[in-house]
């Protein structure tokens, strides 16, 4: 162990200015600023904070003291940097190179600031370890942030993509677009059933033209929705089952024991028929319209 040489922390303090200069130079050269997503002054502050936190986290032999307050604040600072990089749209390598590009300046400073060869070797080894560890932590924090973003977007998509639309008094339609996984189906199902109550709709059309594939689980979810709607006193019609989906379902042995129609228009026609209503052509429409809605029976339904 080095005796007459300074500790790594002191070495960092003595050479802080050169290290910072070289580090920022490398970061700029590697393109950290080029995209303009981060200001030069912001980067300089982050570098300065990092070095000073790092000094507080070092043991005299140059290894990281994981129980120190300095280490905790170093990690939280790095976590914050990675999070903001992830949100700003940096790539994982761009984010990790913030830490990894510190290696070279640290090695240079050690080279200049230590005399004994064994001290030099020991410091370089310790520095290498700590930079690797912090670099990996950066990636983890980055990935975590991205996962959070993806989870949030998934939720938003689920909410956005399940609008329940009113087609007629008492007739609702739910055009489903995209793959139905079980979590999303639950949202869809609850939305639809709630709308049935709010609008006192007797008929709900679930249109799955926009659903690319239907597996056994999805088919079961659809059936559960239909069953729950029936318990509430509403009928469901499923429309837009693609030929290959119909085939898959037969192969899977799933029997969709519900009323289904080829497309939304047919399903709507059936709904009107059940409500004892029809759309008929008008021979000479003075207003120029092709057809108008009438109720064929004078029941006031």
């Amino acid at each position: 162990m080095p005796n007459n040489d300074k500790s790594l922390a002191d070495l960092l303090a003595t050479h802080e200015h050169e290290i910072l200069q070289e580090w920022q130079g490398l970061l700029k050269a590697s393109g950290a600023l080029q995209t303009g997503r981060i200001k030069e002054s912001e980067l300089a502050t982050q570098c300065r904070n990092f070095i000073s936190q790092l000094r507080g986290a070092l043991r005299p032999d140059g290894s990281l003291d994981k129980s120190s307050d300095g280490y905790a604040s170093l990690k939280s600072m790095l976590g914050e940097v990675s999070r903001s990089r992830a949100i700003q749209g940096f790539t994982p390598s761009e984010t990790a190179s913030f830490v990894f590009s510190l290696k070279q300046p640290l090695f240079n400073a050690i080279d200049k600031g230590t005399r004994a060869a064994d001290a030099k070797a020991s410091y370089i080894w310790q520095t290498s370890l700590l930079v690797d560890e912090l670099g990996l932590y950066t990636i983890e924090a980055y990935a975590k942030t991205r996962e959070d973003i993806i989870a949030r977007q998934t939720r938003e998509i689920a909410e956005l993509s399940t609008p329940v639309v009113k087609l007629w008094e008492g007739v609702l339609a739910l055009p489903v677009i995209g793959t139905l996984d079980s979590e999303r189906t639950q949202t869809v199902m609850e939305n639809l059933l709630q709308s049935i109550v709010e609008q006192s709709a007797e008929i709900a059309i679930i249109d799955i033209t926009g659903v690319p594939t239907v597996d056994t689980l999805t088919a079961q979810h659809l059936l559960k929705t239909v069953a729950a709607a029936r318990l509430m006193g509403a009928d469901c019609i499923i429309s837009g089952i693609r030929p290959q989906i119909a085939q898959t379902m037969v192969h899977l042995g799933v029997e969709l024991n519900v009323v289904s129609k080829a497309n939304l228009a047919d399903a709507f026609a059936l709904a009107l028929h059940r409500l004892k209503k029809a759309i008929v052509s008008v021979k000479q429409a003075p207003s120029g319209r092709q057809s108008r809605y009438v109720s064929p029976e004078d029941r006031g339904v």
């Binding site: 069953a227 318990l231 006193g233």
Partner: peptide, 25 residues
């Protein structure tokens, strides 16, 4: 008048009340 949450739960429970007619109100 069965509530949506009740209907979902009944289906999950495995009860279909096949012999019962239903209406919204």
């Amino acid at each position: 008048g069965m509530r949506p949450a009740v209907a979902i739960t009944l289906v999950e429970l495995g009860l279909s009340l096949a012999g019962v007619k239903t209406a919204l109100n």
